[in-house]
Design a protein around this nucleic acid. Structure first.
Lengths: 335, 335
DNA sequence: GCGGCTTTTGGCAGCGCTGCCAATCCGGTT
DNA sequence: AACCGGATTGGCAGCGCTGCCAAAAGCCGC
């Protein structure tokens, strides 16, 4: 398999051509199944490839080809700690795989400057597309994306104008729907419990939509608890405990996401507070565990995988520029 | 920023050289900060780069350089649905970022053939390293990895021989430690509840270690429930319900991971079964939520991020070939 | 103002591949 | 037997960059 190569040098297409006794162009054509070639040529090339263990060098291939690399996609996500983004990647890689496109990933840690640096770094691989999260970016990032000569897809958020293609749902609408649900269920003394909003702008948009809808119902947020650091069940539990200590009269809490809500639920279990009788809980994301809870979590299911898939479709088959995939409110039993 | 380029062509190093009034080699040297250059040259190049919005083409750079691309790492994980792998990626990207190395990812869906195809696809980008999950691969994958002329790092599992470098912990030892813990706590009628073992070989190794340790204590697994599909809280809940229906006399359950265990905990809450009085639960992974539960989950914390970091170190600074990062048994309150 | 030295510079080949084009081949015609 | 159109083929330039090397520039002391 690994042949008798002088260890320093890998097998090249030229080696294959020599071994197969055909020209380089023939090998190239056969391997890419592009243009015409005789059965005999195909067989000889296949044999030589197997014999030498040839692995094409796409660096060279992409450089020589016309549109530079059309085989890589640059993806920048703010985090990998939040299930949302791996789910997004899952949808992406799944759909891109079939097209032979690989994802090169960058993690911005919710830092726009880092995002910009990553955009430049990823563009230097001349990807077919640049996939960003959200609509808010540094001017420099936008300039890079525009000048990069690549398709740009902004994922998850549709509340605002995008650079090129946008695939996601309206976070404002999610917040509004969540508020309307709580109001309709009769909750009046409602608080918000979230993680750092300065970094997670989409959570901020949900909250804005939530407050707006509350306002329309003549209500206002009774309290707001913002926990430092990333969202987590631990943070949600501590947050709800803190919130209820300060505002014992609350009857419902809107969490920035399901992880926080799960922590809140644990806090209620631990303190023996009836859910939703004493306090109602409402999440966001519709994660797996939400449905498995003794009382299914009331939340909003977001089409994370589908966003990834549609984003992939956007770079392959020139789909529409703007796709709103909506969301689904899950009534659950906690609110 | 995006200059006055004819839209088809991106700015090249030659353009920068012309704009700056210096030679191409000078631009190259300045940009890579390699070799000596005058202050004046550096300034002129910097200006030209900014003026033209130049983004280097690493495809070309890597092709021209000596060791092909040393700036990409190919990573193959079996799944992105299990938090473990995003965590791994998180550690990896974090550590690799500083070195300017980007990860190209492939998701094998626990399929060795797919893994092999992905290995070939990733190697075609001439990465500096190939990072695999686990130690079990197709012969073809191993051959590719060896012939690829790249550093190979196998992550997570240390129970067996690796191709090149191995970073992880012993899954067998985790299983054994978990069993000893349960035995020491007095549990005797112990069952295993997991997801499909044929695909998740590491879960199988944990179970093997678990059963071996049980055997040493003169005990045997009372029952075993394998749920189809991936692990999830929903699957864990349904699994525990099924298990207890068949074997009401169980006093402890070892889950394939925390997600499953969380589902089991929910099942107990829903059925009003005392944990650990009526039934003890033991997980694996040490996820965030485990500590936030009303009763902290008894589990084993695995060094997922650290595995990623050490794997990164393996490709940068020629670290040791084999790193066992161990694990930590968390006593919790559920077992 | 001139060697002798170091620093800085530009030209150019070539990394492995693909696209283009001209050459060759094949089978059937005339 | 010479001829024709399409299928198949190989040669070679060139993608954008880096490494090498020789040339040019700068610097020192005399």
């Amino acid at each position: 398999m690994d042949g008798i190569q002088p260890p320093g040098r890998l097998v090249t297409l030229t080696d294959v051509a020599r071994e197969a006794g055909v020209g380089e162009s023939t090998v190239s054509r056969v391997l890419r199944n592009h243009g015409s070639s005789s059965k005999r040529a195909r067989e000889r090339v296949a044999e030589a490839v197997a014999r030498l263990g040839y692995v094409p060098n796409r660096l060279a291939g992409s450089l020589a080809g016309p549109g530079a690399s059309a085989q890589l996609a640059g993806v920048i996500v703010p985090s990998l700690a939040n299930v949302v983004f791996p789910d997004l990647l899952r949808g992406l890689t799944g759909a891109l795989d079939a097209a032979g496109i690989r994802c090169v990933i960058g993690v911005s840690d919710y830092d726009p400057d880092r995002e910009e640096a990553l955009a430049a770094a990823l563009l230097s691989w001349r990807p077919a597309a640049l996939l960003l999260t959200g609509l808010e970016h540094n001017p420099g990032t936008v300039a890079l994306a525009r000048a990069g000569g690549v398709r740009v897809v902004e994922m998850i958020d549709t509340d605002g104008a995008g650079i090129d293609a946008v695939v996601g749902f309206s976070n404002r609408a999610v917040g509004a729907a969540s508020a309307r649900h709580l109001v309709a269920r009769g909750y009046r003394r409602i608080a918000y419990l979230g993680h750092d909003l300065r970094v997670d702008l989409r959570a901020g948009k949900r909250l804005a939509g939530f407050e707006a809808a509350l306002g329309e119902a003549g209500l206002a947020l009774q309290a707001q608890e913002i926990r430092p650091g990333p969202s987590s069940p631990g943070s949600g539990r501590a947050g709800l405990e803190a919130l209820l200590a300060r505002h014992p009269d609350l009857d419902a809490v809107y969490f920035s996401n399901d992880d926080m809500a799960l922590g809140g639920y644990f806090a209620c279990l631990a303190a023996g507070l009836a859910v939703p009788g004493r306090i109602a809980l409402f999440g966001f994301n519709g994660l797996d565990f939400a449905a498995a809870m003794p009382q299914p979590l009331s939340t909003v299911r977001t089409p994370r995988l589908e966003i990834g898939r549609q984003a992939a479709a956007c770079l392959i088959g020139e789909g529409p520029k703007r796709i709103d995939l909506g969301f689904e409110l899950i009534e659950g039993a906690t609110a």
